[in-house]
């Protein structure tokens, strides 16, 4: 069991100035787990993700990847091992889809140009974007951009993928193509931590759903249990509001 453990998050506290964002979050992830963070906006979900690859630093607590504290690791090494997909894509605007993927391969993993291009091309193909390899970000649709973003992160062969509301900036008709890529990824056994409002994805793909509110982890459990029979009133309230807003997806 122990060697199957990938991520430990222990009693993490984090604040921006006066504002306390995370107040003692603990959870763990085994390899091949797909965990979905849900909760109202401002509950600290995105901050939790950013703490894991140290885009944000924590005040207290411990985060360990493969049993090693992320604060003992070289920052760039850590980020190589943890892929991240952003809500607003953040594709490098001056680089083609292919170059977006090769940049990290060349500069971080020191791959040769031909090797990097070959790997990047394969990666783009796996997200269905072979044709768009030489397009610039501004020439792609939102869904295509996000798939490039996923390919860019995957190319680094990460142990863990973080998704920060990957479909929130997309038009409704483009959400499906991104979720499909994510589902495939989950089936292939990628360890994923996903912040999303897509409850359908959580039901289908998640091993566990974690409900955060006001910086606290209120409840976690398999999707069936959490959605059908939540133990906490706060979880029930939140899910109720979500259903009345979006309909049951």
């Amino acid at each position: 069991m122990a060697e199957n453990r990938l991520l430990d998050v222990v009693d993490v506290h984090q604040s921006y100035g006066e504002e306390r964002v995370l107040e003692g979050i603990s959870f763990e992830m085994d390899r091949q787990d797909v965990k979905v963070l849900v909760g109202p906006s401002g509950s600290g979900k995105s901050t939790m993700l950013r703490c894991i690859n140290r885009l944000t630093d924590i005040d207290e607590g411990e985060i360990a990847l493969d049993g090693e504290s992320i604060y003992d690791m070289n920052q760039n090494d850590l980020r190589r091992q943890v892929g991240m997909v952003f809500q607003d894509f953040n594709l490098f605007a001056h680089l083609t889809a292919l170059e977006n993927v090769t940049l990290g391969l060349k500069r971080v993993r020191d791959m040769s140009e031909p090797d990097a291009v070959e790997k990047a091309a394969r990666q783009l193909e796996s997200v269905g974007l072979r044709e768009q390899a030489n397009s610039y970000p501004a020439e792609l649709s939102g869904g295509q951009k996000q798939r490039v973003g996923i390919a860019r992160a995957l190319a680094m062969d990460p142990k863990l993928m973080l998704f920060d509301e990957p479909t929130s900036a997309l038009d409704p008709e483009l959400i499906g193509e991104v979720l499909e890529v994510m589902r495939d990824l989950a089936e292939e056994g990628m360890t994923m931590l996903v912040v999303t409002h897509e409850m359908g994805f959580a039901r289908q793909a998640a091993t566990d759903v974690l409900f955060l509110e006001d910086g606290e982890l209120v409840e976690q459990g398999p999707p069936d249990q959490l959605f059908e029979a939540p133990e906490q009133d706060r979880t029930r309230d939140f899910l109720g509001r979500l259903t009345s807003l979006h309909g049951d997806q």
């Binding site: 980020r79 952003f86 607003d88 490098f92 001056h94």
Partner: peptide, 29 residues
Amino acid sequence: EGGQMEAARAVGLSKLDAIRHVVLPQALR
């Protein structure tokens, strides 16, 4: 956009590399 720097850092580029390969090519244009 700040996201460009963040994405470059998330891929594992050092700050200097991120400035050189991601921010400056866009800024110079």
